[in-house]
């Protein structure tokens, strides 16, 4: 792939704008850590300044309970990681929070707005923007067009005004300037006129993140930002996520890569089988017995008897079946 060599430019130290200096970054990190200091390391712990509050959220697919969260709060201005083993319901929870899926019951608020029954595009307009696990670069649009699309309140997006260029030309210019700034920051400016479909996996992730920023969000939700990203680009992506906090945004992300979670998150929420089982700063969470049990099974260090083995096998098969059902469900 010819795009490969260009990925390396993303590795440069991250100081594209004055506000991203390491000093301020540490300040923000410290501020977030300080704010979260007194918070008990318990599932459902209340935060000093929550931006998202979730109560009794339930989502079932047929007989399977995908998400059953009693209470969760996300701290404003911090980077919160959502982790858990496969099938824990992280992505479903994500979809529910951003209204891409509707829960069977429960209430949740963003900035004090109730999001029950709100359309997904309105959530974005309220300031909560998400990315996707399978990157959704709009392949046959150029990189710059992808970026321009992200801007909200465009006059030219009304069908009647669209016919008259003079009505939207000035605004389009402003949007383009903003897009170019972001592209430079994400080191995508050399790809400006290329089709988004011609970018590599990592560049698409960058583009998706940059495009989300065009909306001007208060909170960014990243669904597995590192999935399928070449390790050389990981550091750069990590830097960009930290920059979001830098700019005063709140970040909630789903991730499997524990090193990344430890490196950038201020707070970690652990899900297993649809429930929140632990919360806390990264170091305390990773030593938590409940978390280890959730990932490895509670009897992982005891020898297996034949009966156990059969049971484990049966459970595994059941789980596979469930997952298949869930997938089926998700497809429809």
């Amino acid at each position: 792939m010819p795009a490969e060599e260009n990925e390396q430019i993303g590795q440069a130290p991250l100081a594209p704008t004055p506000r991203a200096e390491t000093g301020t970054r540490r300040d923000r990190r410290d501020a977030a850590a300080l704010a979260l200091k007194g918070v008990p390391h318990e599932p459902g712990a209340s935060k000093p300044d929550p931006i998202v509050v979730v109560d009794d959220m339930l989502r079932q697919f047929g007989g399977l309970t995908a998400v059953d969260v009693e209470h969760v709060e996300v701290q404003r201005g911090a980077i919160t990681a959502l982790i858990g083993p496969n099938g824990a319901g992280k992505t479903t929870f994500f979809n529910l929070l951003t209204c891409f899926d509707q829960p069977d019951s429960g209430t949740w608020t963003f900035n004090g707005h109730s999001l029950t029954g709100v359309a997904a595009h309105r959530v974005a307009r309220l300031g909560m923007v998400r990315t996707f696990q399978l990157t959704k670069a709009l392949s046959k649009l150029t990189v710059i067009e992808n970026m321009r699309l992200g801007a909200t309140g465009q006059r030219g997006e009304n069908v009647f005004r669209a016919l008259f260029r003079s009505v939207w030309r000035t605004q389009e210019g402003e949007i383009t300037d903003r897009a170019d700034d972001l592209l430079a920051r994400f080191k995508l400016d050399t790809k400006r006129e290329d089709f988004a479909g011609s970018l590599s996996g990592g560049q698409r992730k960058l583009l998706e993140m940059a495009r989300a920023l065009m909306v001007g969000p208060e909170m960014v939700m990243l669904d597995e930002p590192m999935a399928g990203v070449n390790p050389a680009l990981t550091q750069s992506l990590l830097g960009h996520v930290k920059d979001l906090r830098e700019d005063g945004m709140t970040v909630l992300f789903v991730e499997h890569d524990m090193d990344m979670v430890r490196d950038i998150s201020d707070w970690v929420i652990v899900m297993a089988q649809g429930k929140v089982i632990a919360e806390g700063p990264p170091d305390s969470v990773m030593g938590d017995q409940r978390v280890i049990d959730a990932y490895l099974g509670s009897h992982h260090d005891a020898a297996l008897t034949e009966e156990d083995e059969e049971q484990v096998l049966a459970e595994a098969e059941e789980a596979l079946e469930r997952e298949r059902a869930e997938n089926e469900e998700a497809k429809h």
């Binding site: 974005a124 392949s139 649009l141 699309l149 030219g156 939207w168």
Partner: peptide, 21 residues
Amino acid sequence: SPWGRVLKAIREDEDAVRSLG
């Protein structure tokens, strides 16, 4: 126009467009 851009984006992936408001 920007209106047409939204249409073309919907052709590519409507969930992505929804996520952008």
